[in-house]
Structures are given as C-alpha cells and as structure tokens.
Amino acid sequence: MFYSIRHLTRYRYDAPVRESVMQLYVQPKSEGVQRLQSFQVSTQPRAALQAYTDHFGNAVYHFDVPGSHQELSVEAEAEVEMQASAAPPEWVDDSAWAILSDPRTRGEHYDMLENHGLTRATPLLQDFLTERGIGKVADPMSSLRRLNQALFAAFAYAPEETDVDSPIDVALSKRKGVCQDFAHIMIAIARGWGVPARYVSGYLYTRRDGGDRSAPDATHAWVEAFVPNCGWVGFDPTNNVLAGERHIRVAIGRDYSDVPPVRGVFKGPANSELAVAVRVSPAKAPRRRDDFLRVVRPMMKPVSRAPENAADEQHQQQQ
C-alpha cells in the first residue's frame, strides 16, 4: 500500500519577529514494514535545512530564519510504502511477566519504563483504574489489548478540550481528549505494570467509515508497548485498534514533548497563531492548500527579555 502525506504548518505573528529557530519531527521512518519512498521539506521564508538523528533514532530537521518575518510555514511531503505485517498474537505466555521484571530487561528499556514528563502517574489515574476495574490480567498482551479497549470506551474523542502538552489529569477529569491524551494515559498505565511503553508520533490514514474517531486532518499519536517474544506492538487507544498498515510512524519518544512535530522559538514581542493541516491519501490526490488548512490555538511563545527575568537569572544555582 502506498500513501502520500502532506503536512503543512504555518505560524502567523501579529508583529514582525526575527531569529526563529525551528525543529521538526516530520520524516516518516523507514524501518520494518514501512518504507520511505520520498521525502521533502520546504519552508517559507526559505532556509537551509539541517538534520541529525536523535538519541531515540528519530530524524530531526531544523532550520533558522534570522531576518524579520511575520509568517513562517513548513511543508513536508512524503511517500511511504506500507507492507502488510503479521498480526500480533491475541496473548502470550504468562511467563512474559517474569521476563519483564528481569533487571536486564528493565535496564535495557529504562527510558520507556520510567515515569516521565506528561506520562507521570497521578492519584486521579489510580482512581480511574479502580473505577473502571482496569488491571493486569494473565499475560501482558491480553492486558494491553483490554487496556486499549477500555480507554477507547472510557473517553470521548473531543478536540480543543486539551492541549498537546496537557498533563493526563486534564483528560482524566474531563473524560475527553485526543490521541496525545489517550497515548499518555496508556503509557502511564503500562509503565505502572512494568511494561515498557513509548509514545509514537505519526500519521493515520483515517477511515471514518471503519469506525475511526481521529480527525483526518491532524497528526496522530499512539503507543508502542514491549511484549516479550513479540517485540514492540503498536496500540491505538483512540481508535480501538492495533497499529497496522494505516499507521505511519514518524518518531518515538517517552512522551509528546520528546518528539513534537514542529517546535520553535523566535525573538520579538509578538503573539503567534498556528495553523496545521495534514492529508494522508492512498493515491496522489489533488491537493489544495485552502480546503484543508485550519486554525488552531497559538502554541509558540516568544523568548523575550523583560526585567522580570532577573528572577530567572538569579534562580540558577551557584556551585
């Protein structure tokens, strides 16, 4: 199956800004059943793209726009081939728990076991687990499958209720959220069980008629959990499926903040407005900017130097 992906991000500022430095996690991976056929990024204003591979093996692009500008856009286009993969088993042997608790396994997957950032367990999470009767069952695979389903059932899909970097408590108390929230909650629970779990940022070829809840014009996020004898298995609690041929992986991290699709800073006293559009199509469909660009809330903050920074400067510890 071939997909073509177009991902457009546009910042508009209400006053001229300068020295924007941007960082992108937008290149689909080329590993396993996923093959990257082509990829390109263009920016406006034009800039030289630099790239490196981060410590999780993700491709990171970055660029800067030193001069004055009032709009900045990034357009990434990729073509990806997805091969069918064998479906993971319904369950694994219950000795898998022992393998997971082995210090060597835990050491190897330290980063994906530790409570971190947005995936930190909270009292509210504990209440939620108790209330819904969610817990470990016979083996890790069955436990995760049930968890995936339980999260799908417990939460309504509702854009605009949470931010990309909201703590899990926001979604837990509202019982609503989007893919990032569900992924963070699932990760927190899985890690609590001793199952290494990681955040996956990517794209979904959405099939609304197939029961998907995800908005088709957004980036997607789901979870990969390490199951002994199976390796990393993708779970998508937003859509109550296991990640498969329609899930195009871009980056993995401990949580959203490790791998935001686009992040940046700029100088200048301005507010920014962000618009994002994503289209994943199985064929090279005609693409027009206007019919799929939509405005979301501002998410980029200026780095400014105000007198109150005195406190910041003082805040640094003296050794």
Partner: peptide, 9 residues
C-alpha cells in the same frame, strides 16, 4: 540591525 543580509546563506 537586522542580521539576515550579513549572514552567509
């Protein structure tokens, strides 16, 4: 001053 015209491109 604005730096853009002074930087190598």
């Amino acid at each position: 001053y604005s730096v853009d015209e002074l930087l190598p491109s």
